[in-house]
């Protein structure tokens, strides 16, 4: 008999090849089409913002883990890169570099590491950073460059309002008046409107969604519930008074709704575990978004809606249980 020393471990003895790292890089891959389109539309600004954001997120994660938490840095798991990309996608393409770095510090430092790192943060880190910037630097954060093909200048971009901004500022005018000056649906679909770096191109985001679903990184429940609930809610409003409220398609294609529904709300750590809870979470985000957009003072509400629903996730996880096998028949 051989004298090999055998390893003894509890079953199972085989594992799926999926790892956290693979899932995170799956998200990165799914974000690439949008990034590419942003570079084409915004030019050099998109590249600089994205690079600064990603690099500073990774750097802050490394520094905090290495020197503050004193543990082996886990930057290779890709989560910092995802946060960096998502933060970049949520800011205008001409945001001053200093502000981006502050945003990355807030995202990683406050949004993620203060809770202990990946898996422990209750709020989506990129959104924490984004909302912090929105409140601290409202002027810079709402100066949207217009996508006019590849622009080689970083600061001197031509800026304009977002479609949702126009809607908010309409004053006494009717929605149809605003619609006349707003971009067409085709333009919206191809991202020909003012907005954050990664939120305008609906088609690129949908390609991302297909990649995520195909790679089984996320399940369809959250994006579907957000899009459906937003559509239904705005649809009802629109049917009640089309002169006051924009139509559902307009709401779905503008602002950060698709980016939020596909990439931000589906963040593993801050979304519920059970399909039923995912529906509640998604519907909550959809309804809150519409309320903030239509009745609130901010033109856009996806970030706030997601953060608010993030806070409900522990509660949803606690009280909403999956249907157990053999549950219906109660056994004495």
């Amino acid at each position: 008999m051989s004298n090999n020393v055998l390893t003894v471990s509890p079953s199972p003895h085989v594992y799926q090849s999926t790892t956290v790292r693979k899932l995170m890089y799956g998200v990165v891959i799914a974000l690439l089409p949008t990034l590419a389109w942003s570079v084409v539309s915004f030019g050099i600004g998109a590249i600089i913002v994205t690079l600064v954001s990603v690099i500073s997120c990774i750097l802050f994660e490394y520094l905090i883990e290495r020197f503050l938490l004193k543990r082996t840095p886990s930057i290779t798991d890709g989560s910092a890169m995802v946060t960096g990309l998502l933060l970049a996608f949520n800011v205008p393409a001409n945001l001053p570099v200093g502000i981006i770095i502050i945003g990355a510090l807030v995202s990683i430092g406050i949004g993620k590491m203060s809770f202990g790192g990946l898996g422990r943060n209750p709020f989506n880190p990129a959104l924490v950073g984004r909302v912090f910037l929105l409140i601290s630097f409202p002027a810079q954060m709402t100066r949207w460059p217009i996508p006019k093909g590849f622009n080689t200048s970083y600061v001197n971009a031509q800026t304009g309002a977002t479609p949702l901004g126009m809607l908010q500022e309409k004053g006494e005018a009717t929605v149809s008046k605003v619609m006349e000056s707003a971009p067409s649906y085709g333009d919206l679909f191809y991202g020909q409107m003012g907005g954050s770096l990664g939120e305008m191109a609906a088609f690129a985001l949908i390609i991302g969604l297909i990649i995520l679903l195909y790679m089984r990184v996320i399940s369809w429940h959250i994006p579907a519930s957000i899009i459906l609930s937003t559509g239904v809610f705005t649809g009802i409003l629109w049917l009640v008074d089309p002169t006051q409220y924009a139509d559902p398609l307009f709401h779905l294609l503008t602002g950060g709704l698709l980016l939020g529904a596909i990439f931000m709300a589906t963040d593993y750590v801050t979304s519920p575990m059970v399909p039923k809870a995912m529906w509640i979470y998604g519907i909550g985000i959809g309804v809150l978004t519409v309320i903030i957009r239509v009745f609130g003072s901010y033109p856009e509400g996806v970030s706030f809606a997601i953060l608010i629903m993030n806070a409900f996730v522990p509660l949803l996880n606690r009280y909403i249980k999956p249907k157990r096998f053999g549950e219906e028949v109660q056994h004495g």
Binding site: V5, L6, T7, V8, S9, P10
Partner: peptide, 9 residues
């Protein structure tokens, strides 16, 4: 003497 290696929690 260790005659096997345990691997697990």
């Amino acid at each position: 003497k260790r005659t096997s290696i345990y691997e697990g929690p």
